[in-house]
Design a protein around this nucleic acid. Structure first.
Lengths: 247, 247
DNA sequence: GTTTGTCCTTGATCTGGATCAAGCGAGCCC
DNA sequence: GGGCTCGCTTGATCCAGATCAAGGACAAAC
């Protein structure tokens, strides 16, 4: 219908993955107002905490740039990461105004936020948004179940290889291929955060990284930059079914 | 509107948790047709497989009686349970016609099934059903994250205690209290299935059960019947935050 | 340039849970 | 009844990963 003038500049929208990948599939076309009108951005530095478990959270959000982690902590300090949010992933739960987990930025991070109340209203009034969110939540549940297999049954080496292949795959879809064929990326997590992801100690993470490097499965440039000379070789270390499987 | 005669006898609906707890919150009142018209029942014996990962699955379902488990298996036989479905839990994924996991009945089981196509149509046409399903999926995701903490960071004893408290809690809501105050239930899983749930071996499960029994935290009557003399004592073994926490 | 702090690596030792192995008790089939 | 199988328990030993401990590399702060 009557297209709203330039109230919502194109460039702004293009940056926000909510529009094209995350919550609102329909927004790929032309009706942006219902999301545009309630959104705003927030930036965080690497290491910063976004909310603590139990804190009031008056917004939901979509990750634009960077990486955020959800972690749980036991009284005695044992920590387990339970969610890793990359660009286009969704943060927060409709109908719950308190965070269930600690949320921290593991790299510099930009969130595209939506105030809770209008977002929930949008959710009730716009069936295709609710359906898209259901689809995303089901994908996250599948990822969580893959993660449970990793935590419960894989060896330290398999855990590392699995983690690297997950990051490599996600990174490839976020950053359209940099070089010709070669698979390379920066780790968005410290060794300690990787340990929290994998249910290991940071020493074991470091040792297994060294071992994979020694065996030529990965090439380490500095501490964080990873090159994968042969992705299939990495996959064969994960313990996963060789053929594509569910994915 | 004109109420359909006795096509869907009241007693039948009352048995089906879909109606009052699971998918369709609105069905608590009076409009039942849209679910009633497409549902049917299936029964399985303890140990039976319902579908294998990768199999075609032409229905979604709600658990009426009994317990079902979702498990993943690696080529070398390592197994990890990734879902445990008790009465009122939902099985299957809209918009995906192949099972992602092995589904087995761990006790005798009754499912209330819905053929896929009409259920999906229902989902698009009935916003409150989609919203209810989103809510259920988010709860399942929370449970999966609790489970990840268990798998990644808890000791064998804490894992067993956590599992028992989870089952005790769920059982209490399913079977309105049997005796006065006393907390007692039957384990719906073999030691081996418990091991698959907890990322342990069956020997370790057995040893830790014996240890909790020796310490008076639980009373074992036969192999499967558990009595909890003091629920707080059990909780203190789980490693979880003592106050209610997220739940 | 030195200091400080963060992140990471590597070595030595310890230990919780896995693995290997034996046997028990309660159905169930013949 | 006798023999089987299945689910479970318990003992003995082993080992992957945790823990304890000591530096190294690098960047920022002074």
């Amino acid at each position: 219908m009557a297209q709203r003038q330039v109230a919502f500049p194109q460039v702004d929208c293009a940056e926000c993955p909510i529009r094209h990948r995350a919550v609102c599939a329909r927004c790929e076309s032309d009706e942006l107002e219902h999301l545009e009108a309630i959104k705003y951005y927030r930036n965080y530095e690497a290491g910063q905490t976004i909310v603590w478990a139990g804190d009031k959270m008056d917004f939901v959000a979509s990750v634009v740039h960077g990486v955020a982690a959800l972690t749980q902590t036991m009284e005695d300090g044992r920590r387990q990461m339970v969610g890793l949010l990359l660009p286009s992933d969704f943060l927060g739960r409709p109908n719950r105004d308190r965070a269930s987990y600690d949320v921290t930025a593991t790299t510099d991070l930009q969130l595209c936020c939506f105030r809770r109340a209008p977002f929930q209203e949008l959710l009730s009034n716009t069936p295709h948004v609710a359906q898209r969110l259901l689809e995303m939540t089901l994908d996250e549940l599948d990822a969580a179940r893959e993660w449970m297999l990793l935590l419960g049954r894989k060896t330290a080496r398999e855990k590392i290889a699995s983690f690297l292949s997950i990051i490599a795959r996600r990174d490839a879809t976020i950053n359209p291929k940099t070089r010709s064929g070669e698979l390379a990326f920066d780790l968005p997590l410290t060794r300690e955060a990787m340990a929290d992801y994998l249910g290991l100690t940071l020493e074991t993470v470091s040792r297994q990284m060294s071992s994979l490097k020694k065996d030529g499965v990965i090439v380490l440039e500095g501490k964080r930059h990873i090159v994968i000379p042969d992705f299939d070789a990495l996959l064969s270390e994960t313990g996963d079914d060789s053929d594509g499987g569910v994915y």
